[in-house]
Design a binder for these strands. Sequence first.
DNA 1: ATTCTCCGACTACATCTGTAATCGATTCGA
DNA 2: TCGAATCGATTACAGATGTAGTCGGAGAAT
Lengths: 123, 123
Amino acid sequence: MSSERISDAELTIMEILWERAPLTATDVAARLPDDRAWSLPTVKTLLSRLLSKAAVEHRADGRRFLYSPLIGREDYVAHESKRLMDRLFGGKFMPLFAHLAEQENLSAADISEIERLLREMKS
Amino acid sequence: MSSERISDAELTIMEILWERAPLTATDVAARLPDDRAWSLPTVKTLLSRLLSKAAVEHRADGRRFLYSPLIGREDYVAHESKRLMDRLFGGKFMPLFAHLAEQENLSAADISEIERLLREMKS
DNA sequence: ATTCTCCGACTACATCTGTAATCGATTCGA
DNA sequence: TCGAATCGATTACAGATGTAGTCGGAGAAT
C-alpha cells in the first residue's frame, strides 16, 4: 500500500516508531541514534511528510500529537526486498540467493541454519 | 568505490551499457525499454551525470562519444544488496534469508537448488 | 561555399530530500 | 496575570532527480 517511497531520513523515524509507539515528536527526537541527532524542527518536518504519505498517523493528546506507524515494518521490509529483487535480479529469488550466498561467505553455522529452515519449510 | 548513489533513471542507462558497450548516446536511447522511452536530451543528461559520478567513462569517436561502464554490474549489485541488508536486516544475512524464504514461498525445486548450492559451498 | 543536420554542452524547471528557522497560539510557572 | 517554554504550522533553501529544451559548432550533403 501507499506507493509513496519512504526516504532514508524518514526511515530513521519509522524505525523509532516501530520500536515504540505512540510517541510525541519530542519523544521521537530523544530516541534518535547518535549519528542522526537532528533538531526538533527536522523531526517534525519528517513526521509531517510521513503523515502526508500515510505512513504514520497522529492522534491529539492535549495540545500535542501522538504519532503511530500506519505501515507495518514487515510490509515495508517485504516491499523493499521485493524492489531489490525486481530491480537487480529479474524479480527472481534464486539469483538473489546465489549472489548473497557467494558474497556473504557463509559459515558452517549459517549453512546448517539454512538447512534447518529448509527442512522446516518442507513439512 | 565511488560512493555517489546511482539513481533509478541512471540505473536504466547502466543496464543498457552493461549489456553492450561502448555505445553512443543515440545508441543508448535506441535501446531504452518501452516503458522508459526518454528523449535523447534526457539520455544525454543522465549520461553526463553518470560521467560526473565516475560510473561511466567516454572516449571520443570522431565527433561523438562512446560510453562504457566504469562500475561493474557485479559491484553495483553487491553494493545495493549490502545496503538493503544493512538498512533493514541489521547487516546480517540470516534474517534476510529467513524473510525471503518465507515471503517467496519457495518451491520444492527452489529448495533442492539451494541445497545443491550449499553442498557445493561446503566443498 | 552554403545549408542542413547532428552532437555535446549548457540551461531549465518541478519535485523530492535533508536539514532547519521562524511564527502564532497556547499553556505553565511565577 | 505576564512572561517563558513549547507546540504545530509555515516557510526556507540547497542538493538530487526526472525530464527536457536550446544553442553554438562541426560534418555532411549539395
